[in-house]
Amino acid sequence: MAERYSSFAPGGTAWLLQRITAAFLVVVLAFHFFQLHFVNHAAEVTFLGTRARMENLGYFLVMVLFLIAGTFHGVNGVYNALVNQGLSGTPKKVVLAVLTIASVALIVQGIWVALAMAGMI
């Protein structure tokens, strides 16, 4: 029988964060869909409406956490999938560096846009 292999060490920090972010994303994604497809239909979403929602501190914080959790969860999942496929040595370090830089850039850009949408900058 094939041996199960995972780059996640059960009980490790990355393993735990992957599960926590998954649970958080399920809840916040449901909230996001409800908010933007049932309360405000997609065709009715406007810049001013988005700005009004982002001015609410609770909504703003949830959306920033959504950005951070989604970025971590996705990038960590991709990285570990590559490791599970046999990525190792120098290529593994290069991929980790590129994904880390891309993640930081995405989060910084996303927070900058969120601050602009909230009227904070």
Rank of each mutant, 00 (worst) to 15 (best):
N40A: 05
F33Q: 11
Y59I: 10
I68Y: 07
L25C: 07
V75M: 09
H37C: 04
V45A: 05
L48M: 03
A42C: 00
E55V: 06
L87E: 07
L82V: 01
E55I: 00
V78M: 15
Y59Q: 04
A69G: 07
G74C: 05
A97V: 11
L61Q: 06
L57E: 10
Q35E: 13
L29W: 14
N56E: 11
N76T: 03
S88I: 02
N84A: 15
G89M: 11
K92T: 08
H73T: 03
T90L: 12
F47P: 00
V64K: 02
G77D: 06
Y79R: 14
V94I: 15
M63G: 01
V27G: 03
L48P: 00
Y59R: 00
G86E: 10
L25A: 10
N80T: 03
A43R: 09
H37L: 08
F33S: 09
V64M: 04
L61E: 01
N80R: 13
N76L: 07
Q35R: 11
F38C: 03
A43F: 00
F33A: 14
R53D: 12
V78R: 13
Y59H: 11
V95Y: 08
L67W: 09
L67V: 07
A43T: 10
K92F: 05
S88N: 13
V27A: 15
V26E: 01
A81C: 11
N56H: 07
V27M: 11
G70S: 10
L25K: 05
G89K: 12
V94N: 05
T71K: 01
R53F: 13
H37E: 11
E55K: 15
M54N: 04
Q85A: 15
Y59W: 13
V27T: 10
A52F: 01
L29R: 05
V45H: 02
Q35V: 10
R53V: 12
I68W: 03
V62G: 03
A23N: 01
F60C: 01
V28T: 14
L29P: 00
V95W: 09
V78Y: 13
V95C: 06
A42Q: 06
F31S: 10
K92D: 10
L67H: 08
G89R: 12
G77Q: 07
P91C: 11
Q35S: 12
L36D: 11
R51S: 12
Y79W: 05
L99P: 02
L57A: 13
F66H: 14
